[in-house]
């Protein structure tokens, strides 16, 4: 009796496994024969491409006003929530109070000593002490966040952009611990009540996922410059770092530039002309 019960349980276990595996086998076997497989997925002809996207920020051209416009344009383009925004009580009744330390930002202003803590200097030229420095994701060549992510929700695209797949992110926040630039934000709550005006051209996020600058991948795909570069009055230039004739390379060739925390070897793709 005992023996047969045991073998029954074994058989049941094996068949349960079979039921679990069957759909996977079916899916593999059937792919390639559907009409969907005859279709072609391509880039739009007008899409901007690069071997490795990079950004050059001319710090002398960034005034408080320009910086503000840039931050605002980015928020608007990507539906980045602003916790200072008062939620519409009709649409979102009973919104709980906000913890401002749980904010979300993609590009924002910092002082020199925060943007470049390793270059802090008491005798630094006065004008740098007051200048707004815009900081964002550096789209590092050796990105620690990509290495840390356990699901490849954060990954590096062939063209150098470090991207997030919001569908796949489990919200473990390992990437936030890994990023040496504090460039990542977590959606501690549903962001929608805190978006002033939803932009239909870009999805919002759900609670529980990490987000950060995507170098306007969705705009590059349409042949548009990133939103920040667009409104920067020439202060931000985005282009191909591996093309010696690109505008970014010409700028870097002409002027002295620095990158954030170069000593860590993550190879940031964002350059600051001093």
């Amino acid at each position: 009796m005992k023996k047969s019960r045991r073998s029954f349980l074994k058989a049941a276990g094996v068949s349960a496994l079979g039921i679990g595996v069957a759909p996977a086998i079916q899916a593999v076997a059937s792919s390639g024969s559907t009409p969907a497989a005859l279709a072609a997925k391509t880039k739009h002809p007008e899409a901007l491409t690069a071997h490795r996207w990079g950004m050059v920020i001319d710090t002398s051209k960034i005034t408080d006003e320009v910086a503000e416009n840039i931050v605002h344009a980015c928020r608007k383009a990507h539906n980045v929530p602003d916790l200072n925004h008062e939620p519409d009580p009709e649409k979102y009744p009973k919104t709980r109070p906000v913890n401002h330390n749980q904010e979300v930002k993609w590009i924002w202003e910092e002082h020199f000593e925060s943007a470049f803590p390793d270059k802090e200097d008491e005798f630094l030229a006065e004008r740098f002490k007051e200048l707004p420095f815009l900081v964002t994701c550096n789209h590092c060549k050796n990105a620690p966040c990509v290495q840390a992510c356990p699901t490849q929700a954060t990954f590096k695209r062939e063209d150098g952009i470090v991207l997030m797949d919001f569908h796949r992110c489990i919200g473990c926040r390992f990437c936030m611990a890994a990023c040496p630039f504090g460039s990542r934000s977590f959606n501690f709550r549903d962001p929608r009540p805190f978006i002033e005006e939803i932009n239909p051209d870009f999805p919002t996020r759900s609670k529980g996922v990490v987000e950060k600058c995507n170098l306007c991948a969705e705009r590059l795909a349409k042949g548009l410059q990133p939103a920040c570069a667009d409104v920067s009055e020439g202060a931000i230039v985005v282009g191909d770092l591996e093309d010696p004739n690109s505008e970014v390379r010409e700028l870097l060739n002409e002027k002295y530039s620095i990158r954030r925390k170069q000593e860590l070897g993550t190879e940031p793709s964002v350059y600051y002309i001093m």
């Binding site: 880039k43 899409a47 695209r157 063209d159």
Partner: peptide
Amino acid sequence: RDAVVRDADRKYDAA
């Protein structure tokens, strides 16, 4: 979604 997010392909020429 994988094509758009991961491969940067956005245009679909259906069968």
